[in-house]
Design a protein around this nucleic acid. Structure first.
Lengths: 246, 246
DNA sequence: CGTATGATTGAACGCCGTCAATAAGAGTGG
DNA sequence: CCACTCTTATTGACGGCGTTCAATCATACG
């Protein structure tokens, strides 16, 4: 990203708190001028959330937006009887929150340890009014989320269990390691979700997730390590399985 | 909508082509001034599309956006082997098209007969630059679509066949007949989708859709007429079934 | 009337869920 | 270091829900 470098000529104008932040380049804060960044940074609070903690309870603390600094956040929806479905995964430097609406029936939880940079809704909405570029960036992120949601609807509605697992792994690789995902060679990664979360993301049970992972291992596509570690041996094969099952 | 009435004081300034159009009130065109409307209307073309016709082939004719004047549009995604999933239904006066991106791997087809009001991408993008209100409206529609997509992910991933059918019927009623859907009494509607489309929207087969419809009929929740006509006898019960299965 | 399209119903199969047992760590305290 | 517990993951046996395959019916259109 030499583009990002060039912008940093006036790095001294940029608040210290923002200087190492991805959101300033690829995220929504990239739309702000140094002076706006300074104003926003006065109202921000950084926070750390441990694995599996709720980031905002469903109706409470809806007066804040956040940027994800690191970690993975899962967005979950619930049925009255307890069944649940993860409807989105978000990675740094994604924006977190639902503008223009107070009701948000989605639960945001930390899938891994997560660091956030939060600010009051009012402050951000002021910047949105001031700079169309800010709204444009938010709009584009939400369009990307819409595309991803629709891709996943195809996975949920029409794919078999093994295809779902393969689709999930391809998605994780493309987010965790975007450049390496197009190269040759083995890919060792740590899954950001535990089995139960993967099941809730794929509309399956824990047992089926486990079975299909060993299924993929027996096919020689990947190796399963301790904890959440896996090594992908044949990424191309995995992509094929994700769409056709074999 | 007395609000809409008040805006019509200067109705004579508004292009004839726009005067009876929902998109001017609830759709994206509501952000435009009479003079902008006039300019836009010079570049619009109205068109009629028959049931099951492609509105734009996947890569071709991506230089137009449209507003839906009437009818229902289905957005479909495909797997290489032919399996397909409907990832969105759109009703008048929804906006049709994917801004800020040339690649759109979603197929838009007319589910019913559809009337469109189309205009070149460039023209709309010019108005977006000029008026933040225009982008705001688009942004809000896309956020609504994102909410709906995520609601549907829960349906696809975690609900049983009968719950899916009930969810679909509730959704259709709320779009076709928003005010009556909160009242008492029978609701006679014509389904905008045939069985195959319903199956593709719910991630089921045609046979299962048919079986669960008769299942709902036997429960006394609805009556099934000829063609696509149905009468919903007990909407509250239907809503309960949509979330808990009984 | 004949054909095409769409919908319903039945029978049998199979994928995935359910239930249950076991294994593998991680963390705690003796 | 070991014993204990808690959480997470794996594996097996069985059953059910939804698919697959197939036949029948209904309606529209030539």
């Amino acid at each position: 990203m030499t583009n990002g470098q060039r912008r940093d000529i006036h790095n001294s104008d940029i608040p210290i708190i923002c200087q190492a932040c991805e959101a300033r380049h690829k995220g929504v804060c990239g739309a702000l001028s140094p002076s706006q960044l300074t104003e926003l940074s006065k109202n921000t609070t950084k926070s750390v959330h441990e694995h599996n903690n709720r980031l905002h309870s469903s109706d409470q603390d809806q007066e804040h937006y956040s940027n994800i600094l690191s970690g993975v956040v899962k967005l979950t929806k619930l049925l009255p009887d307890g069944r649940q479905q993860i409807v989105g995964l978000q990675f740094a430097p994604d924006f977190l929150g639902r503008p223009f609406s107070t009701q948000n029936n989605v639960i945001a939880e930390a899938a891994t340890n997560v660091r956030l940079c939060s600010f009051p809704k009012k402050v951000l909405e002021k910047f949105i009014e001031e700079s169309p570029e800010m709204e444009r960036r938010l709009h584009e992120q939400h369009l990307n989320e819409l595309d991803e949601a629709r891709d996943w609807m195809l996975t949920l509605g029409r794919k078999t269990a093994i295809e779902k697992l393969a689709s999930f792994l391809v998605l994780i690789v493309s987010h965790i390691d975007p450049e390496r995902s197009h190269q040759e060679g083995d890919l060792a990664i740590e899954l950001p979700l535990k089995r139960g979360d993967i099941a809730d993301y794929l509309g399956l049970t824990i047992e089926t997730v486990s079975r299909q992972l060993t299924n993929l291992r027996k096919k020689g596509v990947l190796e399963i390590g301790a904890k959440r570690a896996i090594k992908i041996v044949n990424l191309e094969r995995l992509k094929t399985i994700a769409e056709s099952g074999n």
